[in-house]
Simulated scan of single mutants.
Amino acid sequence: MTDTMLSESLASARRRLTEALAAAGRPADAARLLAVSKTKPAGMIREAWRLGQREFGENYVQEALEKQAELADLEDIVWHFIGPLQANKTRAVAEHFDWVHSVDREKVARRLNDQRPEALRPLEVCLQVNVSGEASKAGIGFDELEDLAGKVLALPRLRLRGLMAIPAPADGLARQREPLARLRLALDALRRRFPEAPLDTLSMGMSDDLEAAVLEGATLVRLGTAIFGTRDTSRR
């Protein structure tokens, strides 16, 4: 992808988000664009940064660390880890990321807390919920959510911000909205249960269901191919 193509695709993604927010009757700044840059080279991330994008999502720890080292001069870049998180990778994530969207076990949360350097601000965390009940998907069930949230809120080096989900693909706006609405209601319930917590984040919505997610209150939408083009799955 050329720099011109990236500029056009990023502008198109921003326009799509703006239009979705307007259609939902929400303020233009109610949701942010998270550019999912997994498998994309650091040079492409640098160009997106030059075009004003600041938040980037990565799925693979080693790949992300290499890109972070190459882009270390971009002091205001914000790194989100959005992939499945194995316990043996928590130290690298705790030391090098600003956000983690995929916490779904107390063990992982405790390791992230214990390994987060004191010199850094607390790690921003979302709990991943398996909203569609898919056996192949990571995430906790709705019935486990309150217990895990309470445990994460007790960890001083983590800051629980909200919930994340990757729903099963669905056709049509109404069907897409159903699992996203359940996630929104779950966050509302957590806010009532833990009124002191900064629970302001719904990380949901990708290329196929952005409009449905915005209608259901998404505050972070994750777009990858819509910005950077088709992924090279051989890059890991």
Rank of each mutant, 00 (worst) to 15 (best):
A168P: 04
T230M: 10
R182M: 10
G57R: 01
G217E: 00
S102L: 08
E55Q: 15
T39R: 10
K107S: 11
A226E: 14
E211V: 15
D147L: 10
L223N: 05
L6C: 00
D104N: 10
A135L: 00
E63M: 08
R121S: 11
M5Y: 06
A69T: 11
A31T: 01
M44K: 11
R159D: 10
A24G: 06
D171T: 13
L148T: 02
E47F: 13
G83E: 00
A94R: 03
L215N: 08
A168S: 14
L223M: 12
A218Q: 05
F142E: 10
T230C: 11
E211Y: 12
A119K: 13
V221A: 04
L127Q: 03
V78C: 14
E216D: 05
L34R: 06
L215K: 00
R193E: 07
T18V: 08
S234G: 06
L65N: 00
E134Q: 06
Q86N: 10
P198C: 12
R159Q: 14
D143Q: 09
D76L: 05
A64S: 11
L190T: 04
R54V: 07
M164Q: 06
A168V: 09
P195S: 09
A94H: 00
L155Y: 11
E66F: 10
G150S: 13
L74N: 03
A42E: 11
A48L: 03
K151F: 11
G139N: 02
A24Y: 05
G205C: 05
R159S: 15
D208W: 06
D171V: 13
A149I: 02
E75N: 13
R116Y: 08
G83F: 07
V36M: 09
A72F: 10
V214H: 02
G205W: 01
F194W: 05
N113D: 14
R15V: 08
V78R: 08
V129I: 08
A212W: 05
A165R: 01
L65Y: 01
W99H: 09
D188N: 12
V103L: 09
R157V: 02
W49K: 00
I140Y: 03
G217K: 02
E124L: 11
A94Y: 05
A69Q: 15
R175F: 09
L158G: 01
E66W: 09
F194L: 04
Y60R: 15
L173F: 13
W49E: 08
T233Q: 15
L215T: 04
R111I: 09
I45Y: 10
A24N: 02
W99N: 04
